[in-house]
Design a protein around this nucleic acid. Structure first.
Length: 324
DNA sequence: ATATAAATCACGATCCT
DNA sequence: AGGATACTGATTTATAT
């Protein structure tokens, strides 16, 4: 689709990041900027044309009319673009490469002869090898498989797997891999992704589905977190409450009460510096007590994988915070 | 279930060579 | 620069009540 149809206006960024009209000169991508006359007008992010020099926004709000599945005349037909399957971060080449069909049929649907089938088999084999030949691609392919496998084991949804994949790609691009295991970085990326998406899994949980131990994951996570300057927010203990509660077959009332307790604790600042898992476990135990449901400390300790002692310590703090 | 002391663990700073 | 050292805060282990 071409960039221009109606009259375009020149707009300038104001301080709030919005745009305001300043004149009615028109300029298209590739032309000189009418304002500073030095820079080239470029279309960098979709839907915005701006000058490379002074940043003047020439045309914002360009409408993306979506993929051009249909073409109405010959020029449109030849320019038809942006069609195809959506790209996904979960496949090492983002699903953009060619695939050879596994069905031994020709274009008309007829079965192939025996020789032809053998030939296709060899072609598929070689095609697959070439496709993943590049060392980085092989690395990615393996890592993304690992991420997917671990995520499945932890019940992490697809969108978060994509987040983890993006983090891994960035780590790879920045050359953070040498000296570190692929599995370790994959595990760390997954851990970071769950936290970023607000559905935290603890490092210990990630370790149970990984071949890497918790300490190694912790170290690697620290490293990539620093190097990629991910902005990972502190984990809200409530992110654990739901899973622990269901592991213990808690009633809704207990679960709700536990969330209240966590909220009170975090508001009081009790949680800072403490292991969020411990807070969640203690809140659950306290909630059960308040609701007259009998759950032993050792049950909670087992479900949350913290010691009973920690539950007892947090338990008092959480209750203190709640009584206000 | 609770309390207490001791042991452990990872960490980041600092000191030393 | 690199390595050992001593310190810190949180948690776990052990033990007793």
């Amino acid at each position: 689709m071409t960039a221009e149809s109606g009259p375009s206006r020149i707009r300038e960024r104001d301080r709030t990041g919005g745009t305001s009209e300043t004149s009615t000169t028109r300029a298209a991508a590739g032309e000189r900027c009418p304002e500073c006359d030095g820079g080239l007008v470029v279309a960098e992010e979709a839907a915005e044309l701006h000058c490379a020099e002074c940043g003047l926004v020439v045309d914002a709000d360009r409408v993306d009319h979506g993929p051009e599945w249909r073409a109405y005349d010959d020029s449109q037909r030849t320019e038809r673009s942006r069609v195809g399957a959506p790209a996904t971060e979960l496949i090492h080449d983002r699903g953009l490469s060619t695939d050879i069909d596994w069905r031994d049929r020709d274009a008309a649907g007829r079965v192939l002869s025996a020789e032809r089938r053998a030939e296709m088999r060899r072609l598929r084999t070689w095609h697959e090898r070439f496709r993943t030949q590049d060392a980085e691609d092989r690395n990615l392919k393996y890592a993304l498989g690992e991420i997917d496998r671990m995520a499945s084991g932890l019940g992490v949804p697809r969108s978060t797997r994509e987040t983890a994949s993006v983090i891994y790609r960035r780590a790879l691009d920045q050359g953070l891999l040498p000296g570190r295991s692929i599995e370790g970085v994959a595990a760390a990326a997954l851990y970071a992704a769950t936290r970023l998406d607000g559905i935290a899994r603890s490092i210990d949980e990630v370790a149970t589905v990984s071949r890497i131990d918790a300490l190694e994951i912790e170290r690697t996570y620290r490293y990539i977190n620093r190097e990629l300057s991910l902005k990972v927010p502190p984990t809200d203990p409530n992110e654990y409450v739901g899973r622990f509660a269901s592991a213990l077959d808690c009633s809704d009332a207990v679960t709700r009460r536990a969330r209240e307790l966590v909220r009170a604790a975090t508001d009081a600042g009790v949680h800072s510096g403490r292991h969020p898992v411990g807070i969640a476990a203690a809140a659950l135990y306290a909630a059960a007590t308040i609701e007259d449901v009998t759950i032993t400390q050792s049950d909670v300790a087992e479900a949350a994988d913290v010691s009973e002692v920690t539950i007892r310590n947090r338990y008092r703090e959480v209750l203190d915070a709640y009584r206000d």
